[in-house]
Amino acid sequence: MTALVRYRLTTLLLSQRYLAPLLLFAALVTVLTSNDTGPLTAAHAASGLAMLLAATWLTMALAGLDDPPHRAVLTAATGGHRRLTTGTVLAALAACLPLAALGLLLPLLVGDHSPTAADLLLGVEVQLTCACTGAAVGLLTARPVVRRQGHGLLLALALLLVLTLGKGLPPVNLMLTRLSGHHRSADLVGSTALLLALAAVLLGTAAVVGHAVAVRRD
């Protein structure tokens, strides 16, 4: 599995399709949190939103890297569709990790904060929740589930709008609402951990659905 993740990440790097989501992420976080002296929870909300977009984009790029003939080669080499899907999920999460670190550090660099341990822990939870949710959206809107890129893009935008704007919808909208309402990170660490677990379940479900569709279509 390590070898598959390594291959996926290498081809993502060489294809340079990571550049656009990375730049979008860095730009959003910098613009939304620069010269910010307010509570860190607001900065977390901003970088979480950026992570949701970037994770979706990165996962769609990863899943779309191989055309169907080469996906068949990879399926035979890995020993089945299930392992291939798992590899894509792990590669997507691995690609999101550097972004999560960036999303945690950038607000501290461009703003003026004095973070506590609870602030940092909450930040990690927010980043991972958004990474998992974004990866789930990406899996459901890229090959092999949605074969046409244009349709996938529209579907991804619709899903992201629902997730961010749907009032009180867990995990993303609920988390963003709480982050903008509360200013003490320590109060939110527990409830955000639950939302992170929910996001992980969402990602798992998306992987199972993606796998089932791939098997039916192939």
Partner: peptide
């Protein structure tokens, strides 16, 4: 498995 059309777009 050897497909009939091997498209290798990568820079590898």
């Amino acid at each position: 498995y050897v497909p009939d059309r091997f498209t290798a777009h990568e820079r590898l």
